[in-house]
Design a protein around this nucleic acid. Structure first.
Lengths: 127, 127
DNA sequence: AAGTTTTAGAACTAAATGGTTATGTTGCAT
DNA sequence: ATGCAACATAACCATTTAGTTCTAAAACTT
């Protein structure tokens, strides 16, 4: 799986409230499929499907204990997702900083000369 | 929209590589629909649809400039998503800490007496 | 006024998603 | 060996999604 595919899998796994609830439960400790299914108004196979999605995204791993398949949460994919978010947060914060700078410059410019063009022009810069 | 629905919208918006690329582009500054569409091997209406998804999730807002509808990124929903991730990270880190403690106890126990039961039993604790 | 640019919408299609019920499969218990 | 418990798989269905093309609307340009 490429990094982009991993992000696809992680974010789409997180996009469902049932799956987020399952992760929330697993954050408290391992649980079997039936234990996980219990709070939900849906069949066991439906929960098994959700677990498969979570497993495919690497967010959950399973072991064996007789007939049970205890599930546990895995943090690594969430770290990747967090990193992605942090990265773009940084980028657009830099962008805001640049906008602030530009607005300062325009203000100074306006004070010095007169009209100062369209401030939104900065948006097409590709540096 | 409930907080859960907002998370649904945010995470599923982020689950598509095209939409993540659009956000990456917008992190560098505003852009029009055609500008955003240019790098992709897909039609303009397809990009418009992606933008609608991003807009519905509150990740993008649009203004007017003649025929253009410049798009800009909005950070708030991403902050919510980050918060959700951070929350569960904290939870399962607490869980790991508890596991460590338990393992320590079991080791001490084993040293004192003998066999010490199944260490994975801790998983069914609901404190 | 007519044409062009930019964007949105409608109608359609293929594939993925989220659920169901019914049926296997695996491993323990009696 | 028979049965029960926990889970998975199969087959099916409805809805959503991601794309297409074609068309319409809005606002500028000449």
């Amino acid at each position: 799986m490429t990094p982009s595919e991993r992000l696809d899998a992680t974010f789409s796994a997180l996009a469902d409230p049932t799956r987020r609830a399952i992760l929330a439960r697993l954050a408290l400790g391992e649980a079997s499929v039936l234990e996980l299914a219990e709070p939900f108004a849906m069949s066991q196979p439906a929960v098994s499907k959700h677990l498969k999605v979570l497993e495919r995204a690497g967010l959950v791993s399973r072991s064996r204990d007789a007939q049970r398949r205890p599930c546990r949460i895995e943090i690594d994919p969430l770290a990747e997702a967090t990193d992605w978010l942090a990265e773009y947060r940084k980028l657009w914060e830099a962008n805001f900083a640049r906008l602030d700078t530009l607005l300062e410059e325009l203000k100074a410019d306006a004070a010095a000369h007169g009209s100062a063009g369209n401030p939104t022009d900065f948006t097409t810069r590709e540096d």
